[in-house]
Amino acid sequence: MRKYTPKDNVQGKAYYTDRFHVVPSVPTFDVATDEVFAKQLATLEAKVTIKSAKIMLGQMIVEINHEDNFKAIETLKSECDYAILSEMSAVDYLAKDGNFEVFYQLHNLKDVKRMRLVMRIEQGLAVESVVPLYKSANFAEREMFDMFGIVSNNHPFMKRILMPDDWEGNPLLKTYPLHGDEFASWYEVDKIFGKDAREAIGPEIRDQAQIDRYDTKRFSRVGYEVPFGADISEGETETPIEYSKTFLVDYQKADGSKPAEHRK
């Protein structure tokens, strides 16, 4: 059977994968192999249901239900000494599993341990804000909202942070193209000149490498130069310019006078 690939994922993809390529995995270890983590996991297990737990590359990864996030983080902060929330954000698994993975990267300064609390949440559902526990979540949750559209309940100021307030779409979704969507290409035109000017200006070209073959105002083809703005939809003729003659230095003049000192 053909391998399933999500159709609406517009991110970079490998153009060729070997038929027999087997994807290896980073080795994971049981939480019981680390004393400190095992103790913390036991503390957490008493409060919330744990879906899975493992140690990967020296850090514990615990998966919980998304309803329990506040309770779990409260336990980790008060009972397991996780004093810092280093980072929190989400990963888009909408095409594959139909949900987001939200992760909280926690840091224990006392035991020098780091762990990641992950949870899956469907699109349209909100997570409980952890701003009352960690103020660093204030900006991080706003960024998650901005980039993925995941709302945090009871956040003091749930507003876009990096993108403009009137932006449409969430840039880090897999369905959002790198160079922006239709809305993005008209955003500045509408904002600066108004919607009436759309026809006169045209959409913003957000792909900087884009070349329009028939745009003779900004591009030209070597050897096929035409006047500025000429219409070449019917094809263009070869220009009779010989570059070698133009740029070569003519050392021996025809009348035998002194050779030219400069390029033409």
Binding site: V23, S25, V26, T28, S86, E87, S89, Q105, R114, R116
Partner: peptide, 21 residues
Amino acid sequence: RPPKGEVYVPTESPKGELGFY
């Protein structure tokens, strides 16, 4: 093609903890 998995590595940059997940 790195193996399947996830990693968060903190480093001490001049400004503070710079980490890549």
